[in-house]
Computed example of a mutant assay.
Amino acid sequence: MTDLYTREWGAGDRIALLVHGITTDSTTWLRLGPELAERGYHVIAPDLPGHGKSARAAGYSVESLARALADSIPHPPELAIGHSLGGLLLATAVEEIKPERVIYIDPAWGPGHPSIAEAFRAQKHWTLDDVRSAAPRFTPEAHVNKLESLALWDEATLEIIPALTGFTPAPPSARTLLLLADPSNVVTPDQAVELTAKGFHVHTVPGAGHVIHHDDYPAFLNAAREWL
């Protein structure tokens, strides 16, 4: 076990692991966490190193973040969900975490680029109006949570982005759903076809942006209903 701060909901026998993306933290799951708890899960949502209430690290890499994630899970979860960077880390450590079912929400499997890092860096100076403008479909609570997450986020985590060369997951060993934004900037249509051939269940959520579970929560639940 690591000393990552972990937000939890429910006391069911089934474990659900929720992994957030870069610049945010476990507050991104404040709607989904209680929903899963009502469905009988014990929901575990860690703040990754350099995010939320978890400590900052001396340095960051996909490998070190994935290691911290894997070490934070006491038992193999029945369900694991990862968004964006969280989807990359979950895919990196999935054979060790050993979930029974997996949902990747627009995972960061594409190559990194300095311009992406700079776009994230600019978010550190956002106001609430900037958050509302960038994410008009988020709820008011999610707007506030995003701004608070940005204040806690360590910009040094961006050092991982230039090192990303693109991630190609192995054929899934668990039942796996890949939910994509419309369009996705992290998984190309050709890659989606290849991943379908590998055994991934691929579904694009019409009209949804990168943070699908905030942009269209009902559509997210509907698309994921057989995995939850």
Rank of each mutant, 00 (worst) to 15 (best):
L4M: 05
E8C: 13
V19A: 08
H20N: 08
T24A: 13
T27C: 04
E35W: 03
L36C: 12
R39Q: 14
A45N: 09
P46I: 09
S54E: 11
S54F: 12
A55D: 08
A58I: 03
S61Y: 13
P76M: 15
P77L: 12
E78I: 03
E78H: 09
L79E: 04
I81A: 15
G87W: 01
A91K: 05
A93Y: 00
E95Q: 10
P99A: 12
R101G: 15
R101D: 13
D106Q: 02
G110D: 08
P111D: 05
Q123S: 10
F138W: 01
E141C: 10
A142C: 09
N145L: 01
L152C: 14
W153Y: 08
W153R: 00
L158P: 00
E159I: 07
I160W: 05
I160E: 04
A163H: 05
F167D: 09
P169M: 15
A170R: 13
P172N: 10
R175A: 15
T176G: 13
L179Q: 02
L179S: 07
S184F: 03
P189W: 06
P189Q: 07
D190N: 13
Q191P: 00
Q191I: 01
Q191F: 01
L195M: 14
F200G: 13
V202P: 02
V202A: 14
V202D: 09
T204D: 13
V211L: 04
V211Q: 03
H214R: 01
F220R: 01
A224E: 05
A224K: 02
